[in-house]
Design a protein around this nucleic acid. Structure first.
Lengths: 143, 143
DNA sequence: CAGCATCCTCCATGATACTG
DNA sequence: CAGTATCATGGAGGATGCTG
């Protein structure tokens, strides 16, 4: 997975076969587009929950503990806009809406789950690293 | 919240084999700890750059286009604190410092690269999805 | 139930200046 | 070179109230 590339910059992330794209304006090659989504506070948790099957709005809100109505709306709208989530409205009374992953979204799920598993596997290691860092650097103010 | 919930919640992320951990206080099981790092604006780009080998401070700053001195400092410090990056100071004049991934950090790199590759593979699909969403939902205000 | 509209707060990030 | 210190700010996110 690591071919013999010489000076590689951060944008040539995938390895040799990936387009370096090398535009100063887009140093991240659109990776940020996805990362901004994966990175925000709620998207991943919503995606993971949806990976267990379709969910309705309130159901999602209850599952993703702590999310506000507003943020759930925003999150799920953005995911829909990106084509990762499909939103279906049933014209019942009261209204009923469900959300499910699209195929694209499901593909991302695997990566997200891998990340989640990695997190769980290394949380202790990281926690210990932090403790020892904080001991050796008292009052560093880093969080 | 329901103490003995049988409902599958977002924390049962990996699937059946992952610890549900089920603490209302830590619904994310520490996934957030890692996600917060992966999610912030610069960590991933720094990690990816470091995956190409050790880098010095200025070198990193030049590679990660657009990062400010302050944010680079904060980012590498946090990565160091988490045990993902090793910081080595050489007592030369002027000072010389290099950063390299720890083994833990290198492990995360693989996932991050997978994410980056996925991003590149799907950026067009996502871009098209956004376009069509924006057409069908004019003035929705979603970004 | 599934939202939208407002208001408000705080923090991540940026800009700038200075230092060993 | 490799930072630290300080100030400013935009926007993410929370709280609340209302609606079809």
């Amino acid at each position: 997975m690591s071919p013999g590339h010489t000076e590689v910059t951060v944008e040539a992330v995938g390895a040799a076969e990936l387009e370096p794209c090398g535009q100063p304006e887009h140093p991240d090659c659109g990776i940020r587009d996805v990362l901004d989504r994966v990175g925000d506070k709620w998207s991943v948790l919503v995606i993971v929950e949806l990976s267990n099957g379709p969910r309705r709005f309130r159901q999602l809100q209850r599952a993703v503990d702590g999310i506000s109505q507003r943020m759930l709306t925003l999150t799920v709208r953005r995911l829909e806009r990106d084509g990762l989530v499909l939103r279906t409205v049933y014209p019942t009374v009261p209204a009923q809406v469900d959300y499910r992953l699209t195929e694209t979204g499901a593909g991302l799920t695997h990566l997200v789950k891998a990340l989640a598993e990695w997190s769980l596997e290394h949380r202790d290691t990281i926690a210990r690293a932090r403790q020892s860092y904080d001991q050796e650097h008292p009052g560093s103010g880093i969080r």
